[in-house]
Simulated scan of single mutants.
Amino acid sequence: MKKMKYFMLLGVAILAVGCSKFSMHRVDVYQGNYIEQQRLENLKPGMTRSEVQLLLGTPLVQDVYDPSVWYYVFFHSDSDGKVKESKQIQVHFDRDGRYQYYNGDIGNSAPIDTASVEAE
C-alpha cells in the first residue's frame, strides 16, 4: 500500500512538471529564409531568376498575380509563440525575369533604370 502511494505521488509530480512552464523541452522555432546582408550585396542588376535563387535560396512566396516579386520571409520565435525576430525582403524583377532591386527589413537597394540595364 505504501509503495502504491509512492508511485501515485511520483506520477502526479511528473505530470505537474511536464505540464508546467518550467519544462526542459523549450525549442526556438525558425521559419522561412534567413538572408544575410552579404548575400544581398552580391545581387547584381540583370541577374536571372535562377542566379538569384542560387544566391538567396527558394523564395517563401511567389505571388501568382504579380510574378515579378519574390518574397523572402523569416520568423524566429520561442516555443510560446513570442516572435523574437521577423524580417521580410521583396526581390523585384523586370518583365524579362531579370533582377532589378530589393527592399525590406534588412536593407534597400535603389530601383534602377531598366533602360540602362538593357543597353549593356
Rank of each mutant, 00 (worst) to 15 (best):
S77F: 10
V52P: 03
K44Y: 02
V83I: 15
A16P: 04
I89H: 00
G97Y: 03
W70F: 14
E41T: 08
Y30E: 11
V91D: 03
Q37L: 11
Y65R: 01
G18H: 07
D80Q: 09
M8G: 11
N108M: 11
K21V: 07
L10F: 15
Y99T: 02
Q100L: 12
P59I: 06
L54N: 05
K21P: 11
K87W: 05
Y99R: 02
E36Q: 11
S20Q: 06
A115K: 03
Q37T: 14
N42A: 11
S20R: 05
D94G: 08
V27I: 11
G81Q: 04
R95F: 13
L9N: 09
R49S: 10
D66K: 05
C19F: 15
S50D: 12
G107M: 08
K5F: 14
D94W: 03
N103K: 01
V64S: 09
S77P: 07
F93Y: 11
V29F: 10
M1N: 00
M47N: 02
V12S: 07
E118I: 09
Y102D: 01
R39Q: 05
I112P: 01
P59K: 00
D105K: 01
R95L: 06
D94Q: 07
A13M: 03
P67W: 02
D28V: 11
P59Y: 01
H76R: 03
F75C: 06
M24Y: 14
Y6Q: 10
P67E: 00
N108R: 03
G46N: 07
E85L: 14
V73E: 00
L9H: 07
G46E: 01
I14F: 15
Y30K: 04
L54P: 03
T48P: 12
K5M: 12
G81R: 03
S109T: 13
G32A: 05
G46R: 04
Q90M: 14
V27P: 08
W70M: 06
Y99A: 00
D78V: 11
T114M: 02
G81E: 02
R26K: 09
G104H: 03
I89T: 07
V91P: 13
D63C: 08
Y99E: 00
A16N: 08
Y30P: 06
K3F: 12
V29T: 11
F74C: 10
E51H: 04
F7Y: 14
M47W: 01
M24C: 08
H76W: 08
F7S: 10
V64A: 14
G57A: 08
K87C: 08
N108T: 14
V52C: 04
Y101Q: 04
A115L: 13
Y6S: 06
T58M: 09
S50L: 13
A16W: 06
E51P: 09
